[in-house]
């Protein structure tokens, strides 16, 4: 008995984690298992309470055979991959700028990158309505004033608005991991390369880019998963006629109250999402290993 108490109290044990493990089991493991089971069931919901659940493969087979689902998931994947690529294109230069900056500028860049992360995504998406919106939108006004267009462009409530907004909203998640990996390496590496006669572009290509691969992997995973699973940006900037998988699940659950379908859609969302996380992680690790072995990039 004393032995058990002593072991309990020695602070090296598992016990401090017990509450969190119990918490996560009840609030994550069991709900996810239930969610999975609902995909194989017909459920009857009455006033927000599930009153019956019967095993059936109907919903699953119906959905897997439905072209709408296939198209929606394809659209989601395309959108998320495009956003990831755009975030890389716009994010990498920021990280490079950070690497080349002094203390003060670095601080300013960090504030500019982290502050949006702490601001509600809805607020930041709202800003894009103002910028892209109809005739009075900033973009249209500027283009009209410059005489580049004659009639206002329809950007809001299109695929483009979703793409632009989502890229901006998720950009910090690409920049931060890039900054982390780039600054982890010694600045002397950069200087050594220059000293060996490499131009800045060559240094970028042969030193900085290869060593950034793990950061690109982390950033891409974050940006992809969030873009893949958000319904906020498509709802607000797509104007209700842009349907990605997350929006579909959201509408099934909240608007049309088709909980059985919602269960299948969100299960598919989870499974595909974890598949892509695995894929991105694998690609990043393989590339890193390849760079290390070959010594080239």
């Amino acid at each position: 008995m004393l032995d058990i108490i002593a072991r309990f109290a020695n602070g090296r044990g598992f016990w401090p984690a017990i509450p969190a493990v119990a918490f996560l089991t009840v609030l994550m493991v069991i709900p996810l298992v239930l969610l999975l089971s609902f995909g194989f069931s017909d459920i009857v919901v009455s006033r927000g309470v599930i009153v019956s659940q019967d095993f059936t493969l109907d919903h699953l087979t119906k959905i897997l055979g439905d072209r709408l689902y296939l198209l929606t998931f394809q659209r989601s994947i395309n959108l998320s991959l495009s956003v990831t690529a755009l975030c890389l294109i716009f994010g990498f230069p920021v990280a490079y700028l950070y690497l080349r900056s002094g203390t003060f500028a670095r601080r300013a860049i960090l504030i500019a990158v982290i502050a949006p992360l702490l601001t509600s995504g809805i607020v930041r998406t709202y800003a894009w309505i103002v910028i892209l919106g109809g005739q009075r939108g900033i973009v249209n006004r500027a283009l009209l004033d410059l005489g580049l267009i004659e009639a206002p462009l329809r950007i809001l409530n299109t695929h483009w608005a979703v793409l632009i907004g989502m890229t901006q909203v998720h950009l910090p998640l690409m920049i931060l991991p890039l900054i982390a990996v780039m600054t982890r390496h010694d600045k002397a590496l950069d200087e050594a390369s220059a000293n060996l006669g490499a131009s800045r572009l060559q240094t970028l290509r042969h030193v900085i880019l290869p060593m950034s691969v793990p950061g690109i992997g982390t950033g891409a995973t974050l940006v992809f998963t969030l873009s893949y699973t958000t319904f906020v940006v498509p709802q607000l900037l797509g104007g209700g006629n842009y349907l990605n998988a997350a929006t579909m699940a959201f509408e099934q659950m909240v608007y049309s109250l088709e909980w059985s379908k919602g269960a299948v859609t969100s299960t598919l969302l989870l499974v595909t999402c974890i598949f892509f996380i695995g894929l991105f992680t694998w690609a990043s690790q393989t590339t890193t290993r390849w760079i290390r072995q070959e010594g080239v990039a």
Binding site: A20, L32, L35, I50, T225, Y228, F250, C273, I277
Partner: peptide, 21 residues
């Protein structure tokens, strides 16, 4: 304990709604 980070918020929200129901 770090796994929930990989579960999309929408999926977790729906799953907990179901569990609650």
């Amino acid at each position: 304990v770090l796994f929930p980070h990989m579960v999309p918020g929408i999926v977790l929200g729906i799953a907990i709604l179901f569990a609650g129901a």
